[in-house]
Design a protein around this nucleic acid. Sequence first.
DNA 1: GCCAACGTTGGC
DNA 2: GCCAACGTTGGC
Length: 139
Amino acid sequence: MSYWLFKSEPDVWGWDHQVAKGDEGEEWHGVRNYQARNNMRAMRVGDLGFFYHSNIGKEVVGIVEVCRESSPDSTTDDPRWDCVWIKAVRPFKRAVSLEECKVQPGLEGMVLVNNTRLSVQPVSPEEWEIVCRMGGVEP
DNA sequence: GCCAACGTTGGC
DNA sequence: GCCAACGTTGGC
């Protein structure tokens, strides 16, 4: 079981959209970055991830689960790009902002804090636990 | 809206 | 294979 973080601009695709898709989930299409794609290829069904709102909010708002492993991205014919499907699991009781993460002990090495431009990131088990607790949910 | 960081592209 | 030019992301 591994942990991840998915970034999305909430005015394009936000937590509420994700929740509306229910257990069927949604294809995490549109990623055109090798590092992010490779992270998705490493995902397995049942892996958990944070759902992060970039630009607007800049905060982790909930937890998602990988419900389909990486397969061709339906929004392109380019065979280089594929993606997983994710479904919403539960919302945070309170959103955890980027600002908070930056000053939280234990999160100094978090990719979110150190590589602002990577849209699909790995999260360590320690980071997972810390951020879940900050968000008011059990890891 | 600006700009820093970073990734990609393409000429050589 | 190098690197300059360019494009994109995302925090501020």
